[in-house]
């Protein structure tokens, strides 16, 4: 599905260069469930952002669904991730001004999908996540676990091929976390490719594959 070859990313502070990612090689097949682990500041989130095309890199090659991402223009890149990638965040990042229903609907609006079609799709996913009753509530009226559920529903609404999750259970208690991880497992079983960043060995175990990151470099086991 995607392949990173010799990815470098750095920032210059004064005449000193700090590497965020260093010579990262990585291949992800469709249907895999990968967990990225590592201590704080090891570059996990940066790597995830690079994969999600939210962040640029300075050197290397990135091939996503047979497209060379590093050769694409910003516009093409964003249309690529719009189409294929869904994001889930630690802090959920729901839009406070919008209801549950509207939060989930938002990506479809940006893809210019017709109202009737949008309605059907959102209804479908609300049903599937069993949050129909919450659809008119605002995010602040929900518990953390419920908010993350909405976040995942929103990430999945546009039928992405790849789900990127940045510590999806980091703000949740263990019971809620477990539920979310079970949901991921189930999605993966249905064929969704998932890459998650996590601190927890336990959560990492849900995945099919673990990548350890230290100081921007992948540690070979």
């Amino acid at each position: 599905m995607l392949e990173l070859k010799g990815i470098y990313k750095w920032v210059n502070t004064g005449n000193h260069r700090t590497f965020l990612l260093k010579d990262v090689d990585m291949t992800v097949q469709a249907g895999e469930f990968i967990s990225i682990m590592g201590p704080s500041g090891s570059g996990k989130s940066t790597l995830l952002n690079v994969i999600g095309m939210l962040d640029e890199f300075n050197e290397g090659e990135y091939i996503f669904m047979n497209e060379s991402v590093h050769k694409l223009k910003e516009k093409q890149r964003s249309s690529l991730y719009k189409q294929y990638i869904g994001f889930v965040f630690q802090a959920y990042h729901l839009i406070d001004e919008l209801t549950v229903y509207e939060n989930i609907e938002t990506p479809l609006i940006y893809q210019n999908i017709k109202t009737s079609e949008r309605k059907a799709m959102v209804a479908d996913i609300l049903d599937r996540f069993q949050i129909v009753g919450k659809k008119d509530l605002f995010p602040t009226q929900l518990s953390g676990g419920q908010q993350q559920l909405v976040g995942i529903a929103r990430a999945l609404i546009a039928n992405p091929k790849l789900l990127l999750a940045d510590e999806p259970t980091g703000n949740l208690n263990s019971k809620q976390g477990e539920e979310i991880m079970n949901l991921f497992k189930q999605l993966n079983d249905e064929g969704m490719t998932i890459i998650q960043v996590t601190h927890s060995e336990k959560n990492a175990a849900y995945g099919s594959h673990i990548i350890n990151l230290l100081d921007g470099m992948i540690q070979k086991n």
Partner: peptide, 16 residues
């Protein structure tokens, strides 16, 4: 900022 960022990640183009 947060709202704007989320919207972008959800697929909003700059013109939108």
């Amino acid at each position: 900022l947060k709202e704007t960022g989320v919207r972008k990640i959800l697929g909003a183009g700059r013109s939108q």
